[in-house]
C-alpha cells in the first residue's frame, strides 16, 4: 500500500512538474506547481516527515504560491500568452541538458551502492525512534531550538531583511 501510494504521488509530482514547464499560461504553471507541492507533501508523509508535510502544505502551497498567484494577477499576466518559449534550437538544447542531467544523476544513483549501507545507517530506523519518543513536532523542535538555535534566529533576521527589501523594491515611487 505504501509503495503504491509512493509511486502514485511520485508520478503525480513529476507529471505536474512537466506541466509547470510546458504550460503556456503562467496561472496554469502556478496551479501545476501547487499540485507538485501537494504530491511532495504526500511523499514527505510517507518518508516520516510529518511536520514538514504540514509546513509544505501550509507555507509553501498555501502562502508562497498565493504570493505567486497574486503577482501574476497583479501584473495581469494570467491570460496573456507571451511568446515566452525560446527558439527551437534553445528548446532542443534545454531538453538535451535536462535529459542529460536526469539521466546522469539517475545513472549515478542506480550504479552506486545501496544508500542504506553506503552511509553506514543502522537497521534501526533513526526517525521512527525519535518520532516515537517526541512526537512529530517534538522530533523537529528539540534540535531546532537547541543545536540549530543560532541559524534559526539568523533566519528570522533574513526574513526581516527580505520583508524590508521587498517593501522598498515594490514601492511605487522611485526609491
Amino acid at each position: 500500500m505504501t509503495e503504491f501510494l509512493f509511486f502514485l504521488l511520485s508520478a503525480a509530482a513529476l507529471l505536474s512538474a512537466v506541466f509547470v514547464v510546458v504550460s503556456r499560461k503562467p496561472v496554469a504553471s502556478v496551479m501545476f506547481l501547487i499540485v507538485t507541492l501537494f504530491s511532495l507533501a504526500g511523499l514527505f508523509v510517507l518518508l516520516e516527515a510529518h511536520f514538514l508535510a504540514a509546513v509544505q502544505v501550509i507555507v509553501y502551497a498555501g502562502a508562497i504560491m498565493v504570493l505567486f498567484l497574486f503577482v501574476v494577477m497583479l501584473l495581469n499576466l494570467g491570460h496573456v500568452e507571451l511568446p515566452d518559449f525560446r527558439s527551437a534550437m534553445a528548446r532542443l538544447l534545454a531538453g538535451a541538458f535536462g535529459i542529460a542531467l536526469a539521466a546522469f544523476t539517475a545513472w549515478t544513483l542506480l550504479n552506486g551502492s545501496d544508500p542504506l549501507t553506503a552511509y553506514g545507517a543502522s537497521a534501526a530506523d533513526p526517525i521512527q525512534s525519535v518520532l516515537k519518543a517526541r512526537g512529530a513536532i517534538g522530533a523537529l523542535a528539540v534540535p531546532l531550538f537547541r543545536t540549530y538555535l543560532v541559524p534559526f534566529e539568523v533566519t528570522s533576521l533574513l526574513l526581516l531583511v527580505a520583508i524590508i527589501g521587498s517593501v522598498v523594491l515594490a514601492r511605487k515611487e522611485a526609491p
Binding site: T2, E3, F6, F7, S10, A13, L14, A17, V18, V20, V21, P26, S29, V30, T36, L43, L46, L47, F68, V71, V72, L75, L77, L82, P83, D84, F85, R86, A90, R91, L93, A94, G95, F97, G98, I99, L101, A102, T105, A106, L109, L110, P115, L116
Partner: peptide, 27 residues
C-alpha cells in the same frame, strides 16, 4: 522508497533546470 525518492528528486531537478532554460517569463 529512498531510492525512488532520490530518483524523483533528480528528475524534478532536471525538469526545473529545463524550465529555466526554456522559459523567458520571469515568473
Amino acid at each position: 522508497l529512498i531510492r525512488v525518492a532520490l530518483l524523483v528528486s533528480a528528475a524534478l531537478f532536471a525538469i526545473g533546470v529545463t524550465g529555466v532554460l526554456l522559459r523567458r517569463n520571469a515568473i
